[in-house]
Simulated assay, not measured.
Amino acid sequence: MFFKVLTFASTALLGSHIANAQVITGDGPRPPALTTPAKEGSWTPPAGSGASLTGMGRDLYINSATDFCLLMPPDPVNQNLVDAEAVAVSYCIKPTNGTRPMPDGFIKTAHYRETADYVQISGTYDPAIMNLAANDCGGEYDNHGAEGVGNPVGVNIKNGYTNFFEFIGGCDIPGNAVFCLRTCKGDQSYPYCRNSLDLMGCLFTMPGDYDTPGFTNCQADPGLVVGAFNATYTFSQGMTPTPTIAPPAPQSSQCTTTASPTASGVTYTWNQEAAAAQTAATTTTSSARGTSTGQSSSGTNSNAAKGDSHLGALGLLVTSTLGALIAAVIVL
């Protein structure tokens, strides 16, 4: 919930708006400018799923390293991660009920941890595929929010879980954007899904596996509640000094490695990598056509030369015939 309040003292800056009005925008950098939209992929929603590329559903679940959802901006061309806190929608690897499909290639690594009190997914993502700025530090999505109604409102946590919080951003590990989502079960589970440390990010609130490549599913101990760094010290936002070393990750066991999610042909128009690849392909094709056209042009010139040769021969024939007729007339 990082917000910056900009106060304008002049109607000249606000156009027709009232002077001194407050405009609330996210602290993060604006989304990258989308100069060339990508072509949508071949994905079609499964029959009866209710999923779509423009869905506004907010179902949220974590089933495994290759079957989960993340809340993200519905319009990443114009919204950064903080802008979307109140309006985020679900992108799911197996979308249903109005949720959107996760774009192919967005999730780079994912590690699932199941405990008695919560399940958690953590990993890394490719910002360009969702048109997110690589240095967008992001914000927190949770079912409480500043007014107790959720950020965003109306998230449906599946599988009997009652609390959740999610971080996504590019500042926890600079150069390697990370995401984390935890859903907690039971009325007493909130300490494991405590949402009041929204300045701390993934590494401090959801210790887990962020550096390991690939996709894994593990059982794990619950570990420390959010904000606890050891048995005697629990940090609350606003305390000083702010901890600089993240708490240890819970012990995990029975881990299995799985393949990355199968590509489903999901490409959104704001996918920068797809747009760049398509532009490169178009340029290559145009160059090839240009070369082909040049060859065709050479062929046309050759044909023209042949045509000139035919016309030259015809001219000689006509000239010689006229000459013979004139000579015959003179003799007569």
Results as ranks from 00 to 15, higher is better:
2 F>M: 12
2 F>T: 15
3 F>Q: 15
5 V>Q: 15
11 T>W: 00
16 S>A: 12
17 H>L: 14
20 N>G: 11
21 A>I: 09
21 A>M: 10
25 T>R: 14
28 G>N: 14
28 G>E: 03
29 P>N: 04
40 E>M: 12
42 S>V: 13
42 S>T: 15
42 S>W: 07
49 S>I: 02
50 G>N: 05
55 G>M: 04
58 R>W: 08
61 Y>Q: 09
61 Y>G: 13
65 A>W: 00
71 L>T: 08
73 P>Q: 05
75 D>R: 11
77 V>T: 13
79 Q>M: 14
81 L>Y: 02
88 A>R: 01
90 S>Y: 05
95 P>T: 05
96 T>P: 06
99 T>G: 10
102 M>Q: 06
103 P>Q: 02
106 F>K: 01
109 T>Y: 10
110 A>F: 09
113 R>Y: 07
115 T>Q: 05
118 Y>H: 07
122 S>R: 07
123 G>L: 10
123 G>V: 08
124 T>W: 01
128 A>R: 04
135 N>F: 08
135 N>M: 12
136 D>H: 03
136 D>I: 08
136 D>N: 05
138 G>W: 11
139 G>I: 00
139 G>Q: 02
140 E>M: 14
145 G>L: 13
147 E>C: 04
152 P>C: 06
158 K>S: 15
167 F>L: 00
172 D>P: 14
177 A>F: 03
178 V>C: 09
178 V>I: 15
183 T>W: 00
184 C>N: 04
190 Y>G: 01
191 P>H: 05
201 G>K: 02
201 G>P: 14
203 L>V: 11
205 T>Q: 07
208 G>Y: 00
209 D>S: 09
211 D>W: 02
212 T>Y: 03
215 F>T: 03
216 T>V: 01
222 P>Q: 02
224 L>R: 12
226 V>I: 13
228 A>K: 02
228 A>I: 03
230 N>C: 07
231 A>Q: 13
232 T>S: 12
233 Y>H: 08
235 F>A: 05
236 S>N: 13
236 S>A: 14
238 G>Q: 03
240 T>K: 13
241 P>Y: 01
243 P>D: 06
244 T>C: 06
248 P>E: 03
249 A>P: 02
249 A>K: 01
251 Q>N: 14
252 S>Y: 10
254 Q>D: 15
271 N>S: 04
272 Q>R: 15
277 A>K: 15
281 A>N: 10
291 T>D: 02
294 G>Q: 13
297 S>V: 09
299 G>N: 14
300 T>G: 04
308 D>K: 08
308 D>P: 05
309 S>C: 08
314 L>F: 14
314 L>I: 13
318 V>T: 15
322 L>S: 13
322 L>T: 12
323 G>N: 03
